[in-house]
Write a protein that binds this DNA or RNA. Structure first.
Lengths: 396, 396
DNA sequence: CTTCTTTGTCCACTGAGTGGAAAAAGTAGG
DNA sequence: CCTACTTTTTCCACTCAGTGGACAAAGAAG
């Protein structure tokens, strides 16, 4: 099948496409209720969209007491590819134009192997999804990478945990390989967009999305739009000082949040504790698994292990202190906690909440929910699909 | 004179008004170069603005080799009132529509005396400026208050240092008294707007403006617009924890930035040092002045007093540490330092810079200027005038 | 079968905005 | 003084987005 190449011709059409994406199929009349255009004008724009093939009219809806309406919907054959590259694994998913996930793959991977090797794997996963009949091709792809990105060009800049990617033209390269438009962003920003589109942040204009995985980052949404900062490094909170003269960090400083709490730090601390004989539970897991990860700590905590619980609580306290500062500064309407460490669940959340509610001013915390992300590992790929769909559903 | 009540009738007119405000008088042709409208359409909109009286055509400009152009300018009789209420003093200024300061008064005052007493003083100052022939009346007024504001209504909410103001309808009350439209905002936001309009931040879209006065606050500008947060308390960084288990703060916590460095904290620390005999310089000033303020510390530092310099440096370090965190998080294109403590000058700035450049990641600090505000005490009142002019120069 | 409701289409009209021509008012040079 | 060239402003016919009302289509309810 020939892929769609059309783009909305004006702001009205863009608006309609987004309404159909976020609200599902609608009749012309229902669309008219939402856009403040005369029925005549609306009909014209819908007709133009039908001509481009971006939307289709299929069948008649049930009557509600009058003439039956036509169902207008986004072309059901459109396919977006969402890719979320983490530090140690990749997620690849296929969605339709309404951003519903049709298929999702997850594989372990090491970003440090560099862009060429990683993209080989990503393309293979995409091919697998295509082969399973979910897509004949892709109309667009969104890619998340674990580091700062020069957004307009889609190029990672000075990413600490993936040095080989510095300056690699991700957008251009993948656009060539996939034969479709590509947008690239920081993985944390995509998680924020995912939770905004289909998760806990659906109704909030200004919020923070803290992702605790191998590292720690924070997506910032201002007025419904992701804020990326002057050089694309906004939200890089992993190297904020959490402990004066604390642990040495890979960045050269001491006491960085990431050095004290993150997937990597937690694994290291748990291993240390096990080796020092502080926890039989952790020690036995160390023996079975060979090495400890955040998952082991979560399991130990769930089993009631005091050492594991302490580690989580202390990490949560550190993180909560930093978030408390950000809450005072940014005064968000919501704080979402997500990432691989979400498995630590309520223990972590409680520690974070305690710190924030205690340290920030009442005006900022009075009506501030602090919650876990709703979408888990799907947030990134949904956000990626949303990124490219926002791009393609804007006037060319 | 009857005050102007007209507002621009559409976005084009609003655009033109702002061009005239920020760029001064222009011919129709010059305006046409900036707005991407046909000459015909432009002429129509300019004529409409002339009809409203918001702009006037006075005289012909010198020829540049062809027909002489008419000078189109904002009505020179328009007057805005800018009011900047601090913790211990008020600034009141009159500007024309181009936001040039025509007169400026500054008087000591105590916010804690409550809105009624303060506004009596403000109105007297405004009357004085009017009596001196600078204005026959005001077409609009902007007011800055030292605490969070529910912006749409212009009402302070839960302001820590001015408890008597909580819920007082500043906007409505002053609008009645002055007989003109009024907008109210946090003083820090106005300082940011001032520096953006006429100071160091003219060309930057995303920046932070840290104001160190009696307390500490931070104006946040995102994409050229002030960001106020969900409840209007964004930028309230005075109570971010700077020192774990540090000094007790009025807010009930310990170690808040404001408890360790601010105009008030500096005065207190200097007095303590003088009483303990650590500095002859400060002790002698204590005797002469009766009580020490930040100004005394600045003077002592300028005279080379080691204790004063130490106090400034330590405060700068604390502040710098907090700002370093904000820089990592927000990735601004500029950081402006202002407020009453600006007199501490380069010593303070150097300490702040050292901390930020050392602690934040290179990508965020690589091209990040950290500078003192250019406008000093005028920033607030200019920002206030800008606030109301932005409001009045937007379509009704 | 009639009446009412809802959906969708058609069409004349308005008003924003364009672009080109011409008028107005200069400068520069012979 | 006259001519050629510029720049600014005005005028006007034309395009096109968008409106709102009339009307057709298609069904529900009685």
């Amino acid at each position: 099948m020939r892929r769609m190449t059309a783009r909305p011709g004006n702001a009205h059409q863009a608006r309609l496409l987004k309404l159909l994406r976020d609200g599902g199929p609608n009749s012309r009349a229902q669309l008219g209720d939402q856009v403040d255009l005369s029925r005549s004008k609306l009909a014209v724009e819908v007709d133009r969209l039908l001509e481009t093939g971006l939307v289709v009219a299929d069948g008649l809806a049930a009557s509600r007491g009058g003439r039956r309406s036509h169902n207008i919907r986004l072309n059901p054959e459109l396919r977006f590819l969402g890719v979320d590259i983490g530090a140690t694994s990749v997620d690849v998913a296929v969605t339709n134009a309404e951003l519903e996930t049709l298929g999702h793959l997850n594989q372990p991977m090491d970003v440090r192997e560099g862009p060429v090797a990683v993209f080989e794997q990503v393309l293979a996963m995409a091919a697998k999804l295509r082969a399973s009949g979910l897509a004949e091709g892709f109309d667009g792809a969104g890619i998340g990478v674990p580091g700062p990105v020069r957004f307009p060009e889609g190029i990672p800049v000075a990413p600490p945990i993936m040095p080989g990617w510095d300056g690699f033209p991700v957008r251009e390269a993948l656009s060539q390989e996939l034969g479709c438009p590509v947008m690239v962003d920081n993985d944390v920003n995509l998680m924020a967009m995912g939770e905004q589109h289909a998760g806990v942040a659906r109704t909030v204009a200004d919020f923070l999305c803290v992702k605790i995985g191998t590292g720690i980052g924070c997506g910032i949404v201002v007025g419904g739009e992701v804020y990326r900062g002057t050089t694309g490094s906004a939200g890089d909170i992993g190297h904020i000082q959490a402990v004066p003269d604390g642990r040495p960090c890979a960045c050269g400083n001491r006491g960085c949040l990431e050095a004290h709490f993150s997937g990597a730090a937690l694994a290291r601390d748990a291993t240390e504790a096990a080796q020092q004989g502080l926890s039989a539970e952790l020690a036995s897991r160390l023996e079975t698994d060979g090495g400890l990860t955040a998952v082991d700590v979560a399991a130990a905590a769930a089993a009631g292990d005091a050492t594991a619980l302490d580690l989580i609580r202390e990490g949560g306290n550190r993180t909560g202190q930093v978030i408390a500062g950000l809450v005072s500064f940014f005064n968000p309407g919501l704080v979402v906690i997500g990432g691989g460490v979400t498995g630590l669940g309520h223990t972590l959340l409680a520690a974070i909440r305690t710190q924030v509610y205690r340290q920030s001013l009442p005006l900022a915390t009075g009506n501030l929910p602090i919650v876990l992300g709703e979408l888990g590992p799907a947030a990134g790929v949904i956000g990626a699909a949303r990124l490219i769909s926002d791009h393609l559903f804007s006037p060319a």
